[in-house]
Amino acid sequence: MSKEHPLVLAITGASGAVYATRLLQILCHADREIHLTISPSGAAVIKQELGLNIDVRKPDLDALLGYVAPWTTSPAIKSVAAGAVQRHAERVHFHAYDDYMTPIASGSFRTSGMIVCPCSGSTLSGIARAAASNLITRAAEVHLKEHRKLILVPRETPISVLQLENMHRAAQAGAILLPAMPGWYHGVDGLDSIVDFVVARILDQVDVDNALMQRWGE
């Protein structure tokens, strides 16, 4: 699948909203076209963790893309966020979570892949059972049936047997399970390093060049 095709990003109701905002900013910075959707639970987590009120039908994308964590001191991170705000009108297409008439609900709409970040347990369950109850699970099902990349980023601990079974089923169907489990070997110097480790690994899976982390052996 061509890198020129858009990417789908779904934000659901697991903890770790900061991973999603940073990922969205970097994708905009890389001039990738993004089709974005947010579940009501995802919006609730964004409000709880980031302090942003997000309307799941007409979100303030400037606020979402311009978010900078209060602990961030890096001028580079702030610059990427500011740049993402300037670029999103051309790069980000938003779809309501229950709108099945959008392009990403159909396999005939070509994409380079889909990322669910963070991925809640209920979203994982719906994907693993092919039980689409909203646009997010429908789009994920489309990516599996079309044999395109589907990256699921769960953030849960401990993990129940049922969740493990759902992960196994999703992986068997072709999904890539990429839990938000940051490493500590890349010269961690603050919380931004932890966030960027996970975001870098996601970007690697969708072939977006990045230098967010110090790679092993480099």
Rank of each mutant, 00 (worst) to 15 (best):
A82Q: 06
P179S: 12
I194K: 10
V161D: 03
Q86H: 07
H35T: 04
A211W: 13
P6Q: 12
N210E: 08
I202F: 12
A14Q: 07
I176F: 10
L191Y: 08
S125F: 03
A84R: 01
H93P: 00
D192P: 07
L144Y: 02
R215G: 15
I136T: 00
C28L: 02
L162R: 11
P59S: 13
T37P: 00
L212A: 09
G113R: 02
W71P: 13
C117P: 04
L152T: 07
G217N: 15
D60S: 12
L135K: 01
S106N: 11
F197D: 02
K3S: 10
Q205N: 12
H95W: 09
T72C: 15
V45G: 01
L135S: 01
V68H: 05
M213I: 15
L64F: 07
L36P: 02
L135C: 00
V45N: 01
L164K: 11
A105S: 12
V8G: 02
R138C: 04
I136F: 00
D55G: 09
L191M: 11
G13M: 03
Y67V: 06
G217M: 15
A180N: 14
S74H: 11
L164W: 06
A69S: 14
L191C: 07
V68L: 08
L9N: 05
D60Y: 13
D31P: 02
V80P: 02
A63Y: 09
L152P: 03
E33W: 08
H168T: 14
D98H: 03
C119I: 10
V45K: 00
S122D: 11
D62N: 14
T157R: 05
P118F: 10
R129F: 13
R155Y: 11
D31R: 07
A180W: 12
R110T: 10
W184L: 15
S193R: 08
D99T: 13
L24F: 08
N53V: 06
V198G: 00
A63N: 11
A84E: 00
A173D: 13
I115T: 03
P75C: 14
P70G: 12
L164N: 08
S133L: 02
L191I: 11
L23V: 01
K3E: 11
R110L: 08
G174H: 12
V18Y: 00
G16P: 03
S106W: 02
H186C: 13
G126H: 01
E4D: 15
A200P: 09
A96D: 08
G187D: 14
I127K: 01
S125T: 11
L52K: 04
K149E: 10
Q163D: 12
E156A: 10
P182A: 15
H5M: 05
A139T: 09
L178S: 07
S120N: 06
P179R: 10
A105I: 03
F109T: 05
D99M: 12
A131E: 15
R110D: 09
N134E: 05
Y185G: 13
L152S: 07
S108Q: 03
P182D: 14
L27E: 06
R138I: 09
H143N: 11
G217R: 15
A128M: 04
H186A: 14
W184I: 14
L203W: 05
V188I: 15
R91S: 04
G121Q: 05
G183H: 14
K47L: 12
A173N: 07
M101D: 07
E4W: 11
